[in-house]
Computed example of a mutant assay.
Amino acid sequence: MFEYQRMGRLGNSMAEAEELRRVTDRLAISDVVVQYATGADRRDWALYRDCFTDTVDIDFSSFSGGEPERLAVDEWVLQVRGLLPGFDVTQHNSSNHVHSIAGDMATCVSYMVAEHIYLDTSAENFVTLGGYYTNSLVRTPRGWRISKCQLDVTWQRGNPELFALAAQRAALILAGQN
């Protein structure tokens, strides 16, 4: 009887440890997804870069057209730096995270609303995108990292011409930093 009870507790301990790891993984994955938004909005490029594996698959085709790309992380960060600093402010909100975890691989689908403000215009000075991200992540020695980022824009409001103005301004900012 004692052996059975002890094995029962061991089974529960193993189940509890498994559940704890699942919850810890979910929190860590959501932290990386939120870090993505925080790094972009703060223009903290080291923080932003740290969200990704060394090579990342990017699919923003629902927003910008084109085809999905596989890029070195530094190339991806440079592309983002070629746009976002041209806005006076951005705010990327991430919510409703749904996780699928299988060992050292995971997917996190999250809603997004991204506000982009450009003050130096006589036209409407904002553009807002809404939709969701599907991020594929892998567990690395440094923790969970995004290996694929897919953006699906399902709605938009405001002035989409601001993206071109912001890209022009960001190019001037980057040129001044070199």
Rank of each mutant, 00 (worst) to 15 (best):
G8T: 02
G8C: 00
R9P: 00
L10N: 11
G11W: 00
G11Q: 07
N12C: 00
S13A: 08
M14C: 07
M14G: 02
A15R: 14
A17G: 08
E18T: 10
E19W: 09
L20S: 06
L20N: 03
T24V: 08
T24L: 08
R26W: 02
R26T: 00
L27P: 05
L27A: 10
A28G: 05
A28T: 02
A28H: 13
A28R: 11
I29H: 15
S30W: 03
V33T: 13
G39H: 10
A40K: 03
A40P: 06
A40I: 14
D41G: 01
D44G: 02
D44E: 11
A46E: 15
L47P: 02
L47Y: 08
Y48C: 01
Y48A: 02
Y48G: 00
Y48W: 15
D50P: 06
V56T: 11
D59A: 12
F60P: 03
S62T: 14
S64K: 11
G65R: 01
G66L: 09
E67V: 07
V73N: 00
V73D: 00
E75H: 14
L78Y: 14
V80I: 13
V80M: 14
R81I: 10
G86Q: 01
F87G: 09
F87M: 02
D88N: 13
V89H: 14
H92F: 10
S94W: 00
S94A: 11
N96P: 03
N96C: 08
V98P: 02
V98F: 15
H99S: 07
H99V: 01
H99G: 00
H99K: 11
S100A: 13
S100Q: 15
S100P: 07
I101G: 00
A102M: 12
G103E: 03
T107F: 07
C108I: 04
Y111T: 11
Y111Q: 13
V113S: 07
A114C: 13
I117R: 12
I117V: 15
L119P: 13
S122Q: 13
N125Y: 06
F126R: 04
F126C: 04
V127Y: 10
T128D: 11
T134N: 02
T134C: 05
N135A: 03
